[in-house]
Computed example of a mutant assay.
Amino acid sequence: MDPLLTLAIAAVAAPTVVTLGYVGLCWIAPFKTCKRCAGTGHTTTPILRRPRACRRCHRGMRLRTGRRVFNHFHRLRAEATR
């Protein structure tokens, strides 16, 4: 087999596997832990260190970016076919 062909196949296969893996992850587990509050749903104020609800997630989990994109296109398709 030609080495350039092998390199080309590897260059196409690696991103495809990574993309399909992320799509599967977004399908199976659409939520991920919020980085700001570390999944607690609460942060502290900078001056008094009082706990308050996290402004990013409000509950400790955030919707993955890939799932957010999928939901957007799903809504567009649903509205277009009505």
Rank of each mutant, 00 (worst) to 15 (best):
residue 55 R to K: 13
residue 44 T to K: 13
residue 78 A to K: 15
residue 63 L to G: 04
residue 64 R to D: 02
residue 11 A to K: 13
residue 80 A to L: 14
residue 57 C to Q: 05
residue 28 I to D: 00
residue 77 R to F: 12
residue 7 L to W: 06
residue 27 W to Q: 15
residue 59 R to W: 08
residue 3 P to H: 10
residue 61 M to T: 12
residue 30 P to G: 01
residue 38 A to Q: 14
residue 9 I to V: 15
residue 7 L to M: 12
residue 68 R to A: 15
residue 23 V to R: 01
residue 75 R to F: 04
residue 25 L to E: 06
residue 34 C to N: 01
residue 81 T to V: 14
residue 36 R to W: 02
residue 1 M to F: 11
residue 14 A to S: 12
residue 60 G to P: 00
residue 64 R to Q: 02
residue 9 I to F: 15
residue 66 G to H: 01
residue 80 A to H: 06
residue 79 E to Q: 14
residue 34 C to E: 03
residue 50 R to E: 13
residue 9 I to Y: 11
residue 44 T to S: 09
residue 19 T to K: 07
residue 68 R to W: 04
residue 9 I to M: 08
residue 64 R to C: 03
residue 16 T to Y: 04
residue 54 C to H: 03
residue 82 R to N: 07
residue 82 R to M: 07
residue 59 R to C: 13
residue 35 K to D: 03
residue 59 R to E: 09
residue 16 T to Q: 10
residue 64 R to H: 02
residue 68 R to C: 05
residue 17 V to G: 02
residue 21 G to C: 10
residue 24 G to A: 09
residue 46 P to L: 09
residue 23 V to A: 09
residue 69 V to G: 02
residue 44 T to M: 09
residue 52 R to H: 08
residue 49 R to V: 08
residue 16 T to I: 03
residue 7 L to Y: 10
residue 37 C to V: 00
residue 23 V to C: 11
residue 29 A to H: 14
residue 13 A to L: 09
residue 70 F to M: 08
residue 24 G to T: 04
residue 35 K to E: 08
residue 34 C to D: 01
residue 59 R to T: 12
residue 81 T to N: 05
residue 14 A to M: 10
residue 9 I to Q: 11
residue 12 V to W: 11
residue 14 A to W: 10
residue 69 V to N: 05
residue 11 A to I: 09
residue 18 V to S: 12
residue 56 R to V: 15
residue 40 T to F: 07
residue 74 H to L: 14
residue 32 K to M: 00
residue 70 F to H: 12
residue 12 V to R: 11
residue 57 C to Y: 01
residue 72 H to Y: 10
residue 5 L to P: 00
residue 41 G to V: 05
residue 82 R to T: 11
residue 76 L to M: 14
residue 79 E to R: 15
residue 58 H to M: 13
residue 61 M to R: 12
residue 74 H to A: 10
residue 15 P to S: 00
residue 8 A to Q: 15
residue 27 W to G: 09
residue 53 A to H: 08
residue 33 T to Q: 07
residue 10 A to M: 14
residue 13 A to M: 10
residue 3 P to T: 07
residue 38 A to T: 11
residue 45 T to R: 09
residue 40 T to V: 05
residue 44 T to F: 13
residue 35 K to P: 07
residue 50 R to I: 12
residue 25 L to D: 00
residue 74 H to Q: 13
residue 52 R to A: 05
residue 14 A to V: 15
residue 22 Y to V: 05
residue 81 T to G: 07
residue 81 T to M: 08
residue 79 E to V: 10
residue 53 A to N: 09
residue 73 F to Q: 06
residue 62 R to A: 08
residue 25 L to T: 01
residue 65 T to W: 04
residue 28 I to K: 06
residue 51 P to R: 13
residue 26 C to M: 01
residue 40 T to Y: 10
residue 65 T to P: 00
residue 48 L to Q: 14
residue 37 C to D: 04
residue 16 T to C: 11
residue 67 R to M: 02
residue 70 F to I: 08
residue 78 A to Q: 14
residue 53 A to L: 13
residue 61 M to C: 02
residue 34 C to T: 02
residue 68 R to V: 01
residue 60 G to M: 01
residue 28 I to G: 01
residue 41 G to T: 03
residue 59 R to Y: 14
residue 34 C to K: 00
residue 60 G to L: 04
residue 72 H to K: 12
